[in-house]
């Protein structure tokens, strides 16, 4: 009876832990191992090659471009989506059906499949018949090649990403704004602080944990962009939108260079790991200061 009781928490957690071990933790270790091998998924032997894959990766000019594309895409999407969200949150953080409808409207792209988002924007950005070029024409601008030119394609993907993410960011910011104690705002108004200084002295500092959280989460998720690349550009034109996860996917599932793809996967793992650790360090520092 007592032994059964002692065993119970382990039995209760075992199924979940088994899944987490088999499909989250172990695969990471397996990928690190694979990154030191040369293997084409079919050959029976995984040949150990040491650091060769990493050397090849670092020497590959395509990989350099992939990394700089990923960083450019991430920095632009995150900063724009966060800045716009802050403005929208301050504006829409009001009661009344108009504002709650607005919140619903800007949030709706976030719950839609990226397949739909990609196809929809591919059509809007069609160079010949797309609505966006018609709109540019309306305001007297020349048509843009959007996804079909290597100078503009990555910015077009950033636009799509911002469109999808901004509603989520806005609603998280609104939740953050609503958790600021009302007394702080009342005190500022009693002191006849200007709207501007109330924003800088109270709203922004109190919102900074929320903004920091969004910064980290958005950065990590933008870094993993795949669906829009796969459906809208396949990494082109001339590699201008090829980004890290798509690069791993291509090397793994189209060129069958498993070891090489795994090495690129390890790079992604390290970068995501660093961002996560950084997030926790800052969070724990905040807790200590209290």
């Amino acid at each position: 009876m007592r032994a059964a009781e002692k065993l119970r928490p382990y039995l209760f957690t075992a199924p979940s832990m088994l899944i987490f071990w088999l499909f989250f933790l172990y695969p990471i270790g397996y990928m690190i191992y694979l990154s030191f091998t040369s293997w084409n998924m079919i050959h029976p032997v995984k040949e150990f090659v040491g650091l060769e894959n990493y050397q090849e990766l670092l020497a590959d000019p395509d990989f350099h471009q992939v990394m700089s594309n990923t960083v450019l895409y991430t920095v632009l999407s995150v900063l724009i989506a966060l800045g716009l969200a802050l403005v929208l949150a301050l504006w829409l953080n009001r009661s009344g059906w108009v504002y709650s409808m607005m919140q619903g409207a800007i949030f709706s792209p976030y719950i839609i499949s990226l397949v739909s988002v990609s196809l929809l924007w591919l059509w809007l950005m069609d160079p010949q018949y797309g609505l966006l070029n018609w709109l540019l024409g309306l305001i007297g601008l020349p048509p843009s090649p959007w996804l079909s030119h290597n100078d503009t394609a990555i910015y077009a993907l950033v636009l799509v990403s911002v469109w999808k993410m901004v509603g989520y960011n806005t609603l998280v910011c609104i939740a953050g704004l609503q958790s600021i104690p009302k007394e702080l705002h009342e005190a500022a108004q009693l002191d006849k602080a200007s709207v501007w200084s109330e924003f800088w002295r109270i709203t922004l500092p109190m919102l900074s944990p929320t903004l920091f959280f969004l910064l980290v989460v958005n950065t990590i998720s933008s870094f993993q962009v795949f669906d829009t690349v796969k459906i809208m550009t396949q990494g082109g034109p001339v590699n201008s939108t090829n980004m890290l996860v798509y690069y791993i996917f291509e090397y793994g599932f189209e060129f069958f260079k498993i070891g090489y793809a795994s090495a690129a996967g390890v790079v992604l793992f390290v970068l995501i790991g660093l961002m996560t650790v950084f997030h926790f360090l800052i969070l724990s520092r905040r807790v200590h200061y209290r």
Partner: peptide
């Protein structure tokens, strides 16, 4: 994220 584990 799944984007990290899909290959292994």
């Amino acid at each position: 994220p799944p984007q990290l584990t899909f290959l292994p």
